[in-house]
Deep mutational scan, measured.
Amino acid sequence: MTYKLILNGKTLKGETTTEAVDAATAEKVFKQYANDNGVDGEWTYDDATKAFTVTE
């Protein structure tokens, strides 16, 4: 299944996707991606759209 990450960081904005077996796996991938790019903020998840959002 495809999951999307929407980044609303102070220095990094954009979107990326990942293929994962479930939302928990996608969340781990996205949190590592955000951490690697220096984005740390409030996380939300919308199951209807399979989209995670992180806002700094």
Rank of each mutant, 00 (worst) to 15 (best):
T25E: 13
E56F: 11
D46S: 05
T25V: 07
D22Y: 03
T53E: 05
K28F: 08
T11M: 12
T2N: 07
G38T: 04
Q32L: 08
A26E: 00
F30D: 00
T53C: 06
I6Y: 12
Q32S: 08
K10F: 12
A48C: 09
N8Q: 09
E15V: 14
A34M: 06
E19F: 15
E15L: 12
W43P: 00
A24E: 12
G14H: 12
W43V: 02
T17I: 09
A51V: 15
L12K: 10
G38R: 06
W43Q: 00
T11A: 09
M1I: 14
G14W: 15
K50T: 03
M1N: 14
G41T: 01
V39G: 02
A24G: 08
A51M: 13
D46P: 00
L5C: 10
K13G: 05
A24S: 09
E27T: 03
E19C: 14
T53P: 00
D22N: 10
T49A: 12
T2H: 08
K31W: 07
A48F: 11
Q32M: 09
Q32E: 09
T44A: 09
D22L: 04
Q32N: 08
T44G: 06
L5D: 03
E15Q: 11
F30T: 00
D40A: 12
T11V: 11
I6C: 06
K13M: 09
T11L: 12
T11S: 12
L5R: 00
K10Q: 10
T49H: 09
T55Q: 06
L7G: 02
N37P: 01
D47L: 07
Y45R: 01
A51Y: 07
N8A: 08
E27Y: 15
N35V: 14
Y3Q: 03
D22R: 03
T18M: 11
F52H: 01
A34L: 11
V21K: 12
A34S: 04
A26T: 00
N35L: 15
K28W: 08
F30V: 01
G9L: 15
L12T: 10
T18G: 03
E42C: 12
E56M: 07
G38A: 06
A23F: 13
T2M: 12
T25D: 09
F30G: 01
T44P: 00
A20I: 02
T2V: 13
A51P: 00
K13V: 10
Y33F: 12
D36I: 10
T53V: 06
V39A: 04
A26D: 00
Q32A: 11
E56T: 08
V54I: 10
V54F: 05
T55G: 04
T53W: 05
A51L: 13
L7N: 01
E42Q: 10
N37A: 13
A24C: 13
T16Y: 15
Y33L: 06
V29P: 00
V54G: 01
M1W: 13
A34H: 01
M1T: 15
V29K: 09
F52Y: 06
T44L: 07
D47F: 08
V29G: 04
T18E: 03
K50W: 05
N37S: 08
T44K: 07
G9Q: 04
T16H: 14
K50R: 14
A51W: 05
D46R: 03
F30P: 00
N37F: 14
K13D: 04
T17Y: 15
Y33P: 01
K50S: 05
Q32K: 14
Y45D: 00
T49M: 11
K50E: 02
F52D: 00
Y33N: 02
T49S: 12
A24F: 10
E56S: 07
N37H: 15
K10S: 10
E15S: 11
T53G: 03
F52A: 00
Q32Y: 05
N37W: 15
V29S: 05
A23D: 05
K50M: 11
T53L: 05
L5N: 01
A34E: 00
A20F: 04
K10A: 11
T11Y: 14
I6F: 11
M1Y: 15
L7A: 03
K13T: 10
E15N: 06
L7S: 03
I6V: 09
T16Q: 09
G14R: 11
T25L: 06
T2R: 13
T49L: 13
F52V: 01
K13I: 10
V39N: 02
D46C: 08
A48L: 12
A48G: 09
G9K: 04
Q32T: 07
A23Q: 11
Q32W: 05
Y45L: 01
E19T: 14
A51D: 03
V54C: 08
E15W: 14
A51E: 13
D46N: 08
T18I: 15
E56W: 11
V54S: 01
V54W: 03
A24I: 10
G9M: 13
V29D: 04
E42A: 10
L12W: 14
V39R: 02
T17N: 06
T11P: 04
T44Y: 09
V21R: 11
Q32D: 08
A48P: 05
K28A: 12
T18D: 02
M1S: 13
T49R: 10
E42D: 12
T18L: 13
D46K: 03
E27P: 00
A23C: 13
I6S: 04
K31Q: 07
K28N: 07
L12C: 15
V39M: 09
T49C: 08
T17P: 02
K4F: 11
K10P: 11
Q32I: 09
K31M: 08
Y3S: 03
K50D: 02
G9A: 08
K10N: 11
V54R: 01
E42T: 13
D47R: 07
N8D: 10
L12M: 13
D22Q: 03
A51F: 06
D36G: 05
N37I: 15
L5W: 02
K28H: 07
E19I: 15
L12G: 06
E42G: 05
L12V: 13
E27M: 14
K4E: 04
T55M: 06
T44Q: 09
G38P: 02
A24L: 10
G9D: 03
